[in-house]
Design a protein around this nucleic acid. Structure first.
Length: 419
RNA sequence: GCGGAAUUGGUGAAGUGAUUAACACGCCGGAUUGUGGCUCCGGUAUGCGUGGGUUUGAUUCCCACAUUCCGCCCCA
């Protein structure tokens, strides 16, 4: 038997219906905020991700699906959505005649070669938005507001953690200060953190073991190293969030894994029973990225939501996603002549807006009743030759069990009236 | 990349080195020959993740692999 590949999954049945519902929420809110839907390719030149996400990040070093195609091209399945959008923006020279910022959203499959575990797979979905062409805090607010309202519409109570990494100068100064501070304490750190100090010092702040230690608590803060411009911008963001009544927590230890972020970064958390404090998404400003990819110096900000873990959160929080499980009508027949009429009536009901099923297995009446119940049919349309001779069918309300004979030509009107 | 646990039918599962692999749900058939849902009766794994090995004999023991779940790294 051929089994599915590690870290992939099929989505069907109720799960698929729930996703359709969530997709509609996403589509609806993006429409209100005026973000346009975009699809970019699943695979891109490997170099795109290496340059954007950062050569040193583990996402690129050991988590990408890289392969050579038959033309010997180095390709990579996208591990995140921003790089593809940036490439699209640059390749189509959208900066050439930009009278308005470019606002797009995607909701697509991403791929990372990771060991699957709770809320994490190799193939996963991210919903995200990118706002390109404004360096104003108004744009940051736009993105954070959309993110917050999306979770809110999904019935999740979230907290937004925000921080500022500052511009490149601030960020570099901070990184240096942190390493200088931690180096003398290296023996007091956990094994993992000793490693992190070399590879990715900012992540020491996130350590589960040392995170609460005095050493980390009194470590330098990102905000202490912001230059005036960066600080002003950060304060302005908080003013706007207050104004819009979007709850947030400042977290000066919040740093993000991908290299391209600067200034505002944020992550969105929810407290989920049985799971704990779960990060559902995050984002930030990435002013240098488009230039780094051979485009113009173009400011941008974005957000991405981990779709699968958001579904998990909705599930665990006990939120009910409405699923349409019932059908409007089930057409029942036995004889061949009834069957022909059944085919006709079934099509006719469908074309008039009724979700309709019928029997495809020649079950006989008893089995058809069972099927109708399985489908949760509201009405049973029961045919028999005797009534058909008079151009009539039996319509049985499957809740009240009341049954009436209805002329075939009046069937649609009859169901409309009772609907 | 590292570590731990698991894998029995459509589903939930019990179980054993050797006669027909419990039980329950579901499904199918019948009692009820074209108006069901209750009840009763009967049927429903030539098989115990896949491939090897040990053995007179393996679903049970051993090895490898696959997938799932949990944790680490990493990320979100």
């Amino acid at each position: 038997m051929i089994t599915k590949q590690k870290g992939t999954y099929d989505i069907s049945g109720d799960d698929a219906k729930k996703r359709e519902y969530v997709n509609e929420i996403i589509r609806g809110i993006c429409e209100k905020y005026n973000y346009n839907y975009i699809e970019t390719p699943v695979f891109e030149a490997s170099e795109l991700f290496h340059r954007s996400v950062g050569e040193t990040s583990d996402v690129v070093k050991k988590e990408t699906y890289d392969f050579l195609d038959r033309g010997e091209r180095n390709l990579t399945l996208r591990p995140e959505g921003t790089a593809g959008v940036a490439r699209w923006f640059i390749e189509n020279k959208l900066y050439g005649n930009m009278t308005e910022p470019v606002k797009v959203f995607y909701n697509e499959k991403m791929y990372r070669y990771e060991r699957p575990q709770s809320g994490r797979n190799r193939e996963f979905t991210q919903f995200g938005v990118e706002f390109i062409g404004s360096d104003d805090v108004m744009a940051d607010v736009d993105v954070i507001s959309l993110a917050y309202q999306t979770y809110s519409l999904l019935g999740l109570d979230t907290v937004i953690k925000i921080n500022s990494l500052g511009d490149t100068e601030s960020r570099d100064n901070y990184r240096k200060a942190l390493v200088d501070y931690l180096a003398p304490h290296i023996d007091e750190l956990c094994e993992d953190c000793k490693e992190r100090l070399n590879k990715n010092p900012l992540r020491v702040l996130d350590c589960k073991i040392d995170g609460d230690s005095d050493i980390i608590a009194s470590a330098p803060k990102t905000t202490q190293y912001l230059n005036q411009e960066s600080l002003d911008r950060y304060n302005k963001l908080k003013d706007y969030l207050d104004l819009l009544e979007i709850p947030y927590e400042e977290d000066d230890r919040l740093v993000r894994g991908l290299d391209y972020y600067n200034h505002i970064v944020f992550e969105i958390y929810a407290d989920i029973p049985n799971v704990g404090h779960l990060a559902l998404g995050g984002g930030g400003r990435y002013n240098g990225l488009i230039k780094k990819l051979d485009g113009p110096d173009m400011p941008a900000v974005g957000f991405a939501m981990g779709y699968d873990r958001t579904m998990l959160a909705i599930e665990e929080a006990g939120n009910n996603i409405p699923i349409k499980k019932d059908i409007d009508a089930y057409v029942m027949y036995v004889s061949d002549s009834e069957k022909e009429t059944a085919a006709f009536i079934t099509q006719n009901l469908r074309l008039n807006g009724f979700t309709t099923e019928t029997d495809y297995l020649n079950k006989g009446l008893k089995g058809e009743f069972k099927s109708a119940d399985r489908f949760n049919a509201k009405y049973l349309v029961i045919l028999n030759d005797e009534d058909l001779a008079k151009n009539e069918v039996n319509v049985k309300d499957n809740v009240t069990k009341e049954e009436e004979k209805v002329n075939i030509n009046d069937l649609i009107d009859y169901l409309d009236m009772h609907d």
